[in-house]
Amino acid sequence: MSLFMRQKASLMESRECDLVKITHAMDTWINQENMFGTQLDKYRIMKRSLIYLSALFLVFASSCDIVDNITGGGDNNDDVVVKLYPVLVDGEWGYINNQGAMVIEPTLQNAYPFSDGLAVVRESWGWKYMDKNGDFIIEGDFQDIQPFYDGKAAVRVNGRWGYINKKGNFIINPRFRESNPFSDGRAFVRSLDYSEYLYINEDGDKIESVNMPEDLDNIDENEFSNGRALVRDDELFGYIDRSGSTVVDLKYSEALPFSDNLAAVRVSDRWGFIDAGGSVVISPQYISAGRFGNGLAPARRNSNQFGFIDRSGNFAITEQFEEVRPFTEERAPILENGKWTFIDLSGNKITEAKFDEVDAFYNGLARVVIYVTVDEEVTEQYGYINKSGDYVWFPTN
Rank of each mutant, 00 (worst) to 15 (best):
L56N: 07
I138T: 09
P284I: 02
D260C: 02
N222L: 04
D217R: 13
A264E: 02
Y129P: 00
V89N: 03
L335G: 08
E322D: 15
E92V: 14
F273E: 02
K21V: 02
K167Y: 01
G364F: 03
F188P: 10
K21G: 00
P395H: 05
V20L: 06
A229P: 10
I219H: 11
G100K: 14
T351Y: 10
D203T: 08
N165E: 09
R270C: 01
F136H: 13
S62V: 13
V20S: 03
T107Y: 01
S346L: 13
M130E: 02
L365F: 09
Q146N: 15
V392Y: 08
D184Q: 15
N304G: 02
G364A: 06
T246A: 03
K387R: 14
F182I: 03
W393Q: 09
V378N: 03
Q320P: 01
E235Y: 06
W271I: 00
H24G: 00
Q143T: 07
S63T: 15
E330R: 11
F142N: 06
K206M: 15
S209P: 01
D205T: 10
V392L: 05
W127T: 05
P257M: 06
D269F: 00
D90F: 08
I96H: 02
L345G: 00
N226D: 15
E254N: 09
D234I: 15
R232E: 08
G383W: 13
R232G: 00
F57G: 05
R232I: 05
K21T: 05
E16M: 11
Q305H: 09
I219W: 11
W127C: 03
A119V: 04
E380L: 08
N386G: 11
R177I: 07
R300Y: 02
K354D: 01
P213E: 11
R186Q: 13
E208K: 14
W93Y: 15
N77I: 00
I172N: 05
G74N: 08
S62F: 11
I200L: 08
E380M: 12
A25I: 14
T28W: 13
